[in-house]
Amino acid sequence: MEDLYLSEIFIYPIKSLGGISVQQAEVEERGLRYDRRWMLVDKEGNFLTQRQHSQMALLQVTLQEDGLSVTHKQGLLEPIFVPCNEHTDKEVAVTIWDDVCTALEVSNEISKWFSDALQMPARLVLMPTTTQRLVDQKYAQQGEIVSFADGYPFLMIGQASLEDLNSRLKEPVPMNRFRPNFVFRGGTAFTEDTFVDFTISAIAFRVAKPCARCVVTTINQNTGEKAAEPLKTLSSYRRVNNKVMFGQNLVHAGAGVVKVGDKLAVQSWK
């Protein structure tokens, strides 16, 4: 079998906003450094997502030396800077799916900027290091924790899988529709479905479960517009138990740096 190697790495510092392509990233206990460490919530503390608010796709995050810069992709707002280590002492109980955990509001000023940007009440919160949000215990190996990601520290997709999908579409879609952390090249379409354990840069990863896809895949990440594809086509050949699967959720053990070009070495297969 041909070599498998990382071809792209993405982080999403603020949940459901535009992601960042990086050449290398640090693997920490909760996932990649900076990935989903911030989140937008409503007045009740429920997480905000592109699933209901597709305009969130228009807010792009970039990493600065000591914080995040957030801009509007259509230039409708002045950028705002979010310092990495600054926050209020105001604790907020936030809800992500079935999980409730403690977060810290960043600042009233920054929350107002996001409320104006999204034209609805929104607060930006940060996950403190004291918050221990557990991975679903049905799939966790050793009590792994996760950031504000939907449920797992990492999502991985093979480039061949996207190419297979695009061969079935009238108009191809980019990888950003699926919001992975890791993209790899090598192997055939959906090779990742057969992985059990593998390493990248001597860090051990394990496939937890396939990723069930939702309406976010139908949102153009440059315009915020929705369409039927690619979910319609995916549902015709990637449906399992009435869920559409594309990509694999991962858990891990260890820490270190992963880089584009690193070899992905599979230890065991399904």
Rank of each mutant, 00 (worst) to 15 (best):
L118A: 06
T130W: 13
P210K: 04
G75E: 01
E229N: 00
V135Q: 12
I9W: 12
D89E: 12
F182M: 03
F184A: 02
V92M: 08
L234M: 15
V135I: 11
V173Q: 00
I110G: 01
V146M: 06
N176H: 04
V82M: 01
M156V: 12
S161H: 03
E8V: 10
A265C: 10
Q24P: 06
V260L: 04
G254F: 07
S107T: 05
E2L: 10
T233H: 05
T199G: 05
L59K: 02
G186V: 04
R239D: 12
S236C: 09
T199A: 08
V244I: 14
S54T: 12
E2H: 14
R30W: 05
F114T: 00
Q267T: 15
F114R: 00
L59A: 09
L104C: 00
L77R: 08
L32Q: 07
H87A: 15
Y152P: 11
G186Q: 13
P153H: 03
F178M: 04
T191W: 08
I145K: 07
F246N: 03
G247I: 08
T223E: 13
W97C: 01
I11S: 04
D116T: 14
I9C: 02
V173A: 12
K232F: 10
R185W: 08
F148E: 06
S111G: 00
V82I: 15
W38L: 11
V94K: 07
E225N: 07
A103N: 02
K170E: 14
G31Q: 08
Q55L: 14
P121W: 13
D116R: 10
K112P: 00
M120D: 08
V183K: 00
K73Y: 01
T71K: 13
H252P: 11
L264H: 12
P121H: 11
E78R: 07
V146R: 00
G224F: 13
R36F: 02
G45K: 01
Q248Y: 09
Y12H: 12
K226A: 15
T188A: 15
N249K: 13
A255L: 15
V196R: 09
V207T: 08
T62Y: 06
P210F: 02
E8G: 00
L68W: 11
A160H: 06
D99Y: 09
Q55P: 08
S235E: 05
T95W: 09
T131L: 00
W113F: 15
L250I: 05
S201M: 08
V92E: 01
V146P: 15
A255F: 06
I96M: 12
V135W: 07
E65N: 08
G224M: 10
Q137I: 10
R239T: 14
A93C: 11
V266M: 01
S235V: 05
D116M: 00
S167C: 05
I20D: 09
Q24I: 03
T102V: 12
N220E: 07
G67S: 11
Y34I: 10
L250T: 08
P128H: 07
